[in-house]
């Protein structure tokens, strides 16, 4: 357990010392969302209709942006081999990395999302559902993303490869995340959608660290 908290603490300290990394992700998120009104026109009704979709899709892409360096530093300075060889179970350490990744990207994304919803004229009833859906969905994005980051370590063109591997696996999160908010706006119960998002998270919590750990073992073998 100490190794687990140590991994999280270390990553948070690193993020604290170099806040530009997280800030870049948030800046990308905001900027990409702001581009949409220029693309589809400023009509409030149109923007309100597609607001959820824009926010979720952009959140996926922003999450992707930060994944590439999830294990990059460790792989370059050799500490990844120490992590893999450490007596603590690698799955747990990987899970710690995912938690740290979510704290440094997922959480800030959730924090700025109401502001973006405001810019896109999202219906008032959708805000609570949006925050809840993002809170349940973004951890799954970090977990699935970690698999992709582990698999593409040491590839010739990791940055271009990662989206190809990870984005198809993100589709269920996107579908249920958007459906929850649309249900809330339509006055329908959001519970089933949120439960399904929670179910995806419950599946990802044990399975994704196992897959990522096996990817990392091969990367350092």
């Amino acid at each position: 357990m100490t190794a687990f908290t140590a991994v999280i603490a270390r990553d948070l300290r690193l993020a604290w010392r170099a806040p530009a990394d997280s800030a870049t992700v948030i800046a990308f998120f905001v900027l990409a969302v702001v581009l949409f009104p220029f693309g589809v026109g400023p009509e409030p009704q149109i923007l309100a209709r597609i607001a959820v979709g824009i926010i979720w899709v952009t959140a996926l892409l922003a999450c992707l942006l930060s994944l590439e360096r999830l294990f990059q530093l460790e792989a370059e300075d050799g500490s990844l081999e120490l992590i893999v060889l450490s007596p603590a179970p690698l799955e747990l350490l990987v899970f710690g990395k995912c938690v740290a990744h979510w704290l440094t990207t997922g959480l800030p994304l959730i924090a700025v999302s109401p502001l973006l919803a405001l810019l896109l004229n999202l219906h008032v009833d959708g805000y609570a559902a949006l925050l809840l859906a993002l809170a349940l969905g973004t951890p799954t994005l970090s977990l699935i993303g970690a698999i992709g980051a582990g698999l593409t370590l040491g590839t010739r063109r990791g940055g271009a490869l990662l989206p190809l591997l990870v984005l198809p696996l993100y589709i269920p999160v996107l579908i249920f995340g958007v459906a929850a908010v649309e249900a809330a706006v339509a006055g329908l119960p959001t519970r089933p959608h949120l439960l399904l998002l929670g179910g995806l998270l419950a599946l990802g919590l044990p399975l994704a660290p196992i897959a990522t750990a096996s990817a990392l073992r091969q990367a350092t073998a």
Binding site: T155, R156, A211, Q218
Partner: peptide, 18 residues
């Protein structure tokens, strides 16, 4: 793409298998 992305083909095969 993943299978062909590594200089070491065994590594590519294992990553693609995961």
């Amino acid at each position: 793409a993943l299978n062909n992305a590594f200089d070491d083909p065994t590594r590519g095969a294992r990553a693609a298998a995961v």
